[in-house]
Structures are given as structure tokens and as C-alpha cells.
């Protein structure tokens, strides 16, 4: 059954969209990631114009993060204060990101920027996760647990310190704002929530306890992606509500199934699987850049 998407102006199979949403939903439920970094490139592959894919995916992430954060609120694992500090950086970053996106779209390099960002970030995060989970698997086989030292690095020397009770931290607001800024830019350019960058940054850079990381990240992502959606909708007219809705339906169902599968697997195994998946997507996109394309020409949308 075909459906004509009003903004993307292409006709796609409705079950393909539901299936994609479901598949990515299962993975996001299993691994606790938003799945935007998988969905956006998949949308490119099925022929959705990149500008529409990026903007629409932001809208879909609002829904999945909102659904996720509700559960975290009940468990009280959201550091709202930290969330708002991250959000300040995030909103500035998203504004800059939409602006960069608009500019590159006009000179025809938006596709390159999006692909390059994906290759760099997926490559980095994928390899880090892969190495780290391999080490974790090795360590878990040895007896005895190595106690983790409390890090005290340059971050603690910065001014404007603030107390974050939920996270049990007393740190400067500069690093969270910077983390929010970077993720905000990426969210706007790549059509992702940025959880896959935000989560490691919160653990390793800010030293936040793991249990509040996911909830806080989701909390912040809702606002940044909502803002990104509005910016894309008002400046680029590229949010396709019908596409978002179909992906959503598949996504929310998939996420719940994924969450159940996730419980049955070990954390290290999960992470190594996710790492392999991230690296595979990275490799595919890198190949597109490195190998000679079969069609050298492409038709841009609009003009000037």
C-alpha cells in the first residue's frame, strides 16, 4: 500500500515505513539509544530528500524521547537542573546547526556535511564502544573488581561552579554548556537526538553517575529536538508530519519489544553488538564517499 508524503513529495510503501520504524525501534529499545543515527541514513536510502529526512527525524525523536523520559521520571533518574544547563548550550547549538544546514543547502554541500559528520562520529563512538566493551568482557572473566577512582581533572578547575544534587556533583557549568552546544549542532545537522554522543560525554567528561545519565540526556533531547523541529519547519519547510507519524507508530511498538529482548542479554554483549552496528553504518557511508559513484551528477532541489 503506497502513501504519498505531502512534504517529501514522494510516494512510499506504508509497510516499509512502519517496518523501518519498528526495526530501528527494536534496536533503540535494546540499546537505550534514540536510533536517529540509524534512521536518518536509512531514510536517505529509501529516497526521502535529505533535508526532509533530517527535519522529520527530529520530530520523531521528540516522541521517542518523551515516551522514554516518562519512565525515568517515575524512577527519579532525571537530573533536571543539569538538564536545563545542558539545554542552554543545546538551544544555542541547534540555532547554529540549522543556520549551517541552511547555508550548506544553498551551496549544495549539505549531503557531504551530513555524511562526513556521520562517518566521523559513528566511527569514533563505534570504535570507542567496541574497545571498551571488549575490555569489559575480558575483565569480567578475571576475578576481583578494580575500584574506579574518582577523577579529578582540569574540569574541576573551571569557574562558575554549581551543585547538582541528583548527580551528586559540584562542577563548573562551562563543560555541560559546551557538551550541550556540540550535541545541539549535531542534532540539527544530522537529524539525531545526539544521545550516542551525550551519554559518553556525561559519563566520562562530566563524571555523572550512570543511573541518571540516560534520563537526563533524554530530558534535554526532547527540548533540543523540539526546537530543531520548529526551526526546520519554519525556516526550511521540511518537516513531514505524515512520515513522522508512520515512523513513530512502528518505532514505539519496536522500542517496547526491544526493551524486552535487551533485558535478556548482558550489558557487554549488548554494547559490542551496538558497536558493530554503528561501525557497519559508518563503513557504508564512508564507502559512499570513497568509491566512485555510478552517477556523478545530481539534481538539486529548488535553485539559487
Amino acid at each position: 500500500m503506497q502513501i504519498y508524503l505531502p512534504i517529501a513529495e514522494v510516494s512510499v510503501n506504508i509497510f516499509l515505513l512502519l517496518g523501518l520504524g519498528g526495526m530501528v525501534g527494536v534496536l533503540s529499545g535494546m540499546f537505550g539509544v534514540g536510533g536517529g543515527f540509524l534512521m536518518t541514513p536509512l531514510l536517505f536510502m529509501i529516497g526521502i530528500p535529505p533535508a526532509v529526512a533530517v527535519a522529520t527525524e527530529a520530530n520523531q525523536i521528540v516522541a521517542s524521547s518523551f515516551s522514554g523520559v516518562l519512565a525515568h521520571f517515575k524512577r527519579k533518574t532525571v537530573d533536571i537542573k543539569m538538564g536545563f544547563i545542558l539545554l542552554i548550550g543545546g538551544l544555542i547549538g541547534a540555532t547554529v546547526g540549522v543556520w549551517i544546514f541552511k547555508y550548506l543547502k544553498s551551496i549544495g554541500q549539505v549531503e557531504l556535511l551530513v555524511t562526513l559528520s556521520y562517518v566521523v562520529f559513528l566511527g569514533m563512538i563505534g570504535s570507542l564502544m567496541f574497545v571498551e566493551s571488549l575490555n569489559a568482557i575480558r575483565k569480567s572473566k578475571k576475578p576481583g573488581v578494580v575500584p574506579r577512582k574518582k577523577k579529578h581533572n582540569w574540569i574541576h578547575g573551571l569557574p562558575f561552579k554549581m551543585r547538582f544534587r541528583t548527580s551528586g556533583l559540584y562542577i563548573s557549568v562551562i563543560p555541560p554548556i559546551l557538551v550541550g552546544l556540540v550535541v545541539g549542532i549535531l542534532a540539527a545537522i544530522m537529524g539525531v537526538g545526539g544521545g550516542f554522543i551525550m551519554v559518553p560525554a556525561m559519563i566520562y567528561l562530566l563524571g555523572m553517575p550512570t543511573k541518571v545519565v540516560v534520563g537526563t540526556s533524554l530530558f534535554q533531547i526532547i527540548f533540543v529536538t523540539a526546537y530543531t523541529t520548529l526551526s526546520h519547519a519554519t525556516q526550511n519547510f521540511t518537516v513531514d508530519a505524515v512520515l513522522a507519524l508512520l515512523l513513530l507508530i512502528g518505532g514505539v511498538i519496536g522500542a517496547q519489544i526491544g526493551a524486552r529482548i535487551g533485558v535478556k542479554l548482558k550489558a557487554e554483549q549488548l554494547r559490542i553488538l551496538l558497536a558493530i552496528m554503528v561501525l557497519a553504518m559508518c563503513g557504508k557511508l564512508a564507502a559512499d564517499l570513497l568509491l566512485m559513484p555510478s552517477e556523478l551528477f545530481s539534481i538539486g532541489t529548488g535553485g539559487h
Binding site: V62, A63, F66, V252, Q256
Partner: peptide, 24 residues
């Protein structure tokens, strides 16, 4: 989407939030 972009954007967000809440 083209004439009332802000309202359209807000409406898209509303749909997303309702769907997210509903799913949960």
C-alpha cells in the same frame, strides 16, 4: 506547512508528544 509554518511545527510536536505519552 507553508502558510502557517509555526502552527504546523507546533502541531507536529503535539502529535509527537501525544504519541510518546500514549506509547508509554
Amino acid at each position: 506547512a507553508h502558510e502557517q509554518a509555526l502552527i504546523y511545527g507546533l502541531l507536529s510536536l503535539l502529535v509527537a508528544l501525544v504519541a510518546g505519552y500514549g506509547a508509554s
